[in-house]
Nucleic acid binder design. Structure first.
Lengths: 144, 144
DNA sequence: CAAAGCTCGTTACAAGTGAAACCAATGCTG
DNA sequence: CAGCATTGGTTTCACTTGTAACGAGCTTTG
């Protein structure tokens, strides 16, 4: 068994490396963790979201959301107000600063992603998208 | 920009979920971290490896290798002897216990991977492999 | 062959993480 | 509507992680 050619390993490695290229932009350059980036991404385009919506749309659990959102609040990128409907809940929204940061960073992240994807042939890129979508469906099926 | 349909996010998510399925086997069931599992995987089939070889073949840095290999040693799964040629270096090898554990766990991990991959159509699976190989090549090119 | 510089593995420190406990708010039940 | 269970978010604890510093061993240079 050659680790280097073992498919699950190849998949993990390629995905990690690709993700790393993007972290270099929003992480190294702007000091955002992946969780923070994902939340900011969602909040930048929504008026406001509940933590429940955030959890559903990011696969982050409540602890991760609590921590990441707190850090974003400390950086003045989002607000997290207590819901008046149900005072256990929080309602998250992006600040002007957060909007501005997102508008600055996202194009760079997207460009970085495209730099990598542009290296693939049209055919390979299509295969990648098809394969990943199929894999996403396969792992989403709630069976072991 | 819908996060859920943004390709880099889809890729990261699918890869994470797939990897998670495997961690459930060697991690939850046998208490190995991903780093530990990767080292064990390499050492189980090699007679012995230097840390330099381990680093090259796993993309782990020296700190990660030092820590993961120490844990494996504590569990009596590998040995790490100081090289007599160069006393700064270590030479790693798998113990009998480590071999036995690997022989027990690997088939289960592989089976789990195949459970997921078997859900894909023949065509989707071929596309996935082709796409991932192409992506791996693209991210390996040392250009930003 | 001594001195300076490099390499390797480990460790110290601060920050981050997962799991469980915790607290306040809400919902449910009689 | 009192009492109990549940829910949502935070916090605590122990552990892991990244970065930089460290010390021991090799190598290079004069």
């Amino acid at each position: 068994m050659q680790l280097e050619t073992y498919f699950p390993y190849r998949l993990a490695l390629a995905a990690e490396a690709f993700s790393q290229k993007l972290v270099e932009v929003y992480g190294r350059k702007y000091g955002l963790s992946r969780e923070e980036w994902r939340l900011l991404l969602l909040l930048a385009e929504a008026q406001q979201l509940s933590s429940h919506e955030l959890a559903q749309r990011t696969t982050l659990d409540k602890v991760q959301i609590s921590r990441a959102s707190k850090r974003l609040e400390d950086k003045n990128l989002i607000t997290r107000e207590i819901s008046q409907v149900d005072k256990r809940l929080r309602v998250y929204a992006c600040t002007q600063t957060g909007q501005a940061l997102f508008a600055e960073v996202f194009p760079q992240v997207d460009a970085q992603a495209n730099v990598v994807l542009a290296k693939l042939s049209e055919e390979d890129r299509a295969a990648l998208v098809q394969g990943i979508e199929a894999l996403a469906r396969a792992v989403a099926n709630n069976q072991s």
